[in-house]
Design a protein around this nucleic acid. Structure first.
Length: 270
DNA sequence: ATATGCACCTGTGTGC
DNA sequence: TGCACACAGGTGCATA
């Protein structure tokens, strides 16, 4: 479900409510997530205080002291919700963490593609090898050119590769390529420098706007307070097969690419 | 190196 | 109404 803008929105919600809060109890109701949740390791959260809530790519990274980090990934259908302590459990609520302020964090994930773990900051191999954060500092065309040099795969697959750029998923990659005027099937190494500049700019513009709009809720994404985002109102191509391109009115096309749907305007994107 | 296919899961929408 | 099937915001592995 969540890409960078959704994860960032959730991060902000957790930061607002949880920084300074102390964990009172941890209840792993269903450890069989994408990777098995280590109950004993996670139990070390008890008594610790949330010092900081960060994000890297699509990971939530919470500092809990002593160089320990609580790492969470939401997969496709994961949701982190802050609810009053006495709220009854909802379906697919796999982990609940109680804090010292009548507040619990619930992890719900019907498909169980997400997971979480507690580890030492220097042992988080999940975060090693991730590409640049597109909204931190510069993601310039020149940097993209370096990252894509020599790669023969298509530009869409390259942008979805978290080692190339961190945080982009299937909604935003379609939107970015539309804004940049580049077809998703173009070979990455044949995309011109000027087009890479456009892709770099479009990446930042799309992700910034989507963060401002608190993410895209086209079916069932909600932030940590249960509030939907509004970027779906601005989608140019994603899930708009057959509808008119917002720029030129040509019907949007859809095709499968690497097992997932690509949407593009056959006129605006070359 | 990379492309493809599939596997991990459940829910929802569609067409018959 | 039921049923079969396609498809869903993400990764990661095995195989060619």
């Amino acid at each position: 479900m969540p890409e960078l803008p959704e994860v960032e929105t959730i991060r902000r919600g957790l930061e607002r409510s949880l920084v300074g809060a102390t964990i009172v109890s941890v209840d792993v109701r269903e450890p069989r997530l994408r990777r098995r949740v280590d109950r004993r390791a996670l139990a070390n959260l008890v008594g610790r205080k949330i010092e900081r809530v960060g994000r890297r790519a699509k990971y939530i990274v919470a500092d809990v002291g002593d160089d320990l980090v609580w790492l969470m990934h939401l997969g496709m259908s994961g949701r982190l919700l802050l609810v009053p302590g006495d709220e009854p459990a909802a379906p697919h609520e796999h982990v609940r963490v109680d804090f010292d302020r009548s507040l619990t964090l619930r992890y719900r994930d019907p498909r169980r593609f997400g997971w979480m773990r507690l580890g030492r900051r220097d042992a988080l191999d999940e975060l090693a090898g991730l590409g640049p954060e597109p909204l931190d500092g510069e993601l310039a065309g020149a940097r993209l050119r370096e990252l894509l040099r020599g790669t023969r795969r298509d530009i869409k697959a390259a942008l979805l590769d978290q080692r190339v750029v961190a945080g982009i998923g299937n909604i935003y990659v379609n939107e970015i390529l539309h804004l940049a005027g580049v077809r998703p099937t173009r070979r990455a190494h044949r995309v011109r420098a000027a087009e890479l500049d456009a892709i770099a700019r479009a990446t930042q513009a799309v992700l910034r706007e989507a963060v401002d709009r608190r993410g895209t809720s086209f079916s069932d994404y909600f932030d940590s307070d249960g509030v939907p985002g509004t970027f779906q109102e601005l989608l140019a191509v994603f899930d708009r097969e057959g509808k008119p391109c917002r720029r030129c009115a040509t019907p949007i096309k859809r095709r499968a690419q690497g097992g997932r749907s690509s949407f593009y305007c056959p006129r605006c994107q070359l």
